[in-house]
Simulated scan of single mutants.
Amino acid sequence: MRKRTLYAWGVAIVCFLVLMIVTPAIPQSQEYHDFADQLDFFGIPNTLNVVSNFPFLVIGVIGLVLCFYKDYFKFSLQGELWGWTCFFIGVAAVGVGSSYYHLDPDDARLVWDRLPMTIAFTSIVAIFIIERIDEQKGTVSIIPLLLAGVISILFFDDLRLYGVVQFVPCIAIPLMAILLPPMYTHSAYWLWAAGFYLLAKIEEAMDKVIYKWTHHVVSGHTLKHLCAAMVPVFLTLMLAKRTIETNRISLLKTWKVSWTEVNGNGCQVESREYAYTSVQSEDSHSR
């Protein structure tokens, strides 16, 4: 197991180094700060882009409190507590940091917008390692992953490292949620969270288009904040509802696959449904 872990880390480091060598540097574009909605209300600059961050602060504080309130989330492992604590701290900090940035968008303030997000991203990766791979390795990885996120922000003139920190979890987490057997029930909530985050990124990319479609009522970036805030909402609901999974089967194996089969004469229609489940062998029964 130790050799496989070292091998995996070695492959990851080599892939990262190759990526940094073969790809050009990606500077921070100043056009990024030019958001569609720049209207001011009640003396608050860029009002909707600022106040739409408030849900992050609310759900972050609620989640952080519940982490330590009478074992409300019923964590089974100590590493889970620290991982989720870091996550909710990051979420709450997004509400503050992103609001601060949108009051007067520039490069210096953008650091405080992105830093909390990297804390949340990297914490989630550590949580997945703890719950689905190995508790000790996941717990030990919390600090290195957080440091990697912080370092990615320091390379402000080159967004490649930040891109890796942000987008690799977006791919890895849904895949792990589907392929790796969960420790707890309600694992599908991870996919709901991933779906809302994907929608948020689409809205961010269509900031000005959505602002035009809505006749300057709401911009894509404002909607991005609201959709992204649904990620910690769904994860908090998952933590509140889940229980220990007695039969650890991955989502891929539990999903049902069904389709309708039309016979050759084109008249008779037959529906079939299949479910992927674990089946014990006869040898295991005989033992």
Rank of each mutant, 00 (worst) to 15 (best):
G10Y: 12
V14F: 09
S76M: 03
S98K: 00
Y32M: 11
V257P: 02
V65Y: 00
G43A: 07
S281T: 14
H225T: 05
V140K: 06
V217L: 15
Q280S: 11
M238L: 06
E203T: 15
V168H: 14
L239Q: 13
I133N: 09
R287Q: 04
N265R: 06
R4P: 13
F68E: 07
F234S: 02
E204H: 04
A229S: 12
T254S: 05
Q280A: 08
L235I: 07
A228P: 01
L110P: 02
K70C: 12
V111I: 13
L103P: 07
D71L: 10
R160H: 06
Y32A: 04
T5A: 13
L175F: 15
I210T: 03
A228Q: 10
L175Y: 12
Q280L: 08
E245K: 04
D113N: 08
Y101N: 10
Y162Q: 10
T236L: 15
I44Q: 06
Y197E: 02
I26Q: 11
F155R: 03
L251Y: 07
R114S: 07
L81F: 10
I151P: 09
W213C: 01
L57Q: 07
R114P: 11
K137T: 03
V164P: 00
I26T: 10
F42V: 15
H221A: 05
P24R: 03
L199N: 01
M1R: 14
S123P: 14
S281G: 14
A148G: 03
L161Q: 05
F56A: 05
S29D: 13
G60H: 05
L252M: 12
G79T: 06
V231R: 06
D158L: 04
D107I: 08
T122N: 04
K253Q: 08
L223S: 05
A148C: 03
S258P: 01
F75G: 13
K241F: 09
W84T: 00
D158F: 11
M238K: 05
L66D: 14
I26C: 04
F234M: 08
W259E: 09
L145F: 10
Y211H: 07
L39M: 08
D71S: 11
A8Q: 15
Y100K: 02
N247D: 02
V168C: 09
F75S: 06
V11D: 10
C67S: 03
F88L: 12
L154H: 06
T214H: 03
L146Q: 07
L147D: 04
S278F: 07
T23K: 13
I21M: 14
Y7E: 07
I151F: 08
G138V: 01
V91I: 14
S258F: 10
Q268F: 09
R4E: 13
F121A: 15
H102N: 04
T214A: 02
T23L: 15
F73V: 11
K241H: 13
S29I: 10
Q28A: 12
E270P: 00
Q28H: 11
V58R: 15
F196H: 10
Q166F: 13
C67G: 02
E203S: 11
Y184A: 01
P174F: 10
A194K: 02
I151H: 14
N265K: 01
V94I: 12
I124G: 03
V165W: 12
M183N: 12
Y197T: 02
Y197A: 00
I249C: 10
F155V: 07
V150E: 05
V65N: 00
S278V: 12
L66G: 15
V262I: 06
Y69F: 15
A120E: 02
A148E: 00
Y162M: 13
S250P: 00
W255Y: 08
Y211A: 02
